[in-house]
Computed example of a mutant assay.
Amino acid sequence: MQDEKDKKPYDRFNSTRRTIRFDDDLLEQINSVIGDEPFSSWVKTACRKELERLGIEPKG
């Protein structure tokens, strides 16, 4: 996570931007099922489900 001093003035409080790459085939599959849901929301939900699968209670 970013320290407050490293955040840009336009960054949201209590969140950090991350840049990740997806294999084209995986991204195509994701895009074919998410419909109108925002991509970032879909990815966050997938991450929360994975944490729960590992027995970790997601925060936030």
Rank of each mutant, 00 (worst) to 15 (best):
R12Q: 10
T16H: 11
S15G: 07
D25S: 06
I34F: 01
E57L: 04
R48F: 05
P38Y: 07
K8T: 05
N31M: 10
V43F: 09
K8G: 08
D3Y: 14
E52V: 02
K59W: 15
E28P: 00
E52M: 07
D11R: 02
R53K: 14
Q29R: 15
D23E: 15
S15E: 14
K59H: 07
G35E: 02
G35N: 06
S41R: 14
P58W: 01
D24G: 07
V33T: 11
A46G: 11
R17Q: 12
P38V: 05
Q29P: 03
R53L: 12
P9Q: 09
C47S: 10
D3K: 15
D3V: 05
D11E: 14
R53H: 11
S40E: 08
S40Y: 07
L51A: 09
T16R: 10
Q29K: 15
D24F: 06
K59V: 15
E50Y: 11
E50T: 06
T45P: 00
C47G: 08
F22D: 03
C47W: 04
Q2W: 13
G55Q: 01
K59I: 15
E50C: 03
N31E: 12
D23F: 06
N31V: 06
K5W: 08
T16N: 08
S32K: 01
K49L: 08
T45A: 15
R21W: 12
S40R: 08
G55A: 00
K7Q: 14
K5D: 12
G35D: 02
L26Y: 08
D23W: 04
P58C: 01
G35S: 03
S15F: 06
I20D: 07
L51W: 04
I30K: 01
I30Y: 00
E28Q: 08
P38H: 12
R53C: 03
E52L: 07
D6P: 00
I34D: 00
D11I: 04
S32E: 02
T45L: 13
R18S: 12
S41I: 08
K59A: 12
G35P: 00
F13D: 15
T19N: 11
I30Q: 03
W42V: 04
R12C: 07
L54I: 02
F13R: 13
G60A: 12
D3C: 07
G55F: 00
L26N: 05
Q29S: 15
M1I: 06
F13N: 14
F13T: 13
K44T: 10
R53S: 15
I34Q: 00
D24T: 07
K8H: 09
F39S: 01
D3A: 13
N14E: 13
N31T: 05
K8S: 13
S41H: 11
K7R: 15
E57N: 09
G55Y: 02
S41K: 15
C47Y: 06
C47K: 03
K49C: 01
K44M: 11
E28C: 08
Q29I: 10
R12H: 11
E37D: 01
I20P: 05
D6I: 05
E52G: 00
I20E: 10
K5M: 10
R17F: 09
R21Y: 13
S15P: 03
E37F: 00
E57D: 08
I34C: 00
Q29F: 08
D11V: 04
E57Q: 10
R12E: 12
R21N: 15
D23M: 03
E37K: 06
W42L: 01
K49R: 11
I56Q: 03
S40T: 14
K8Q: 11
L51F: 07
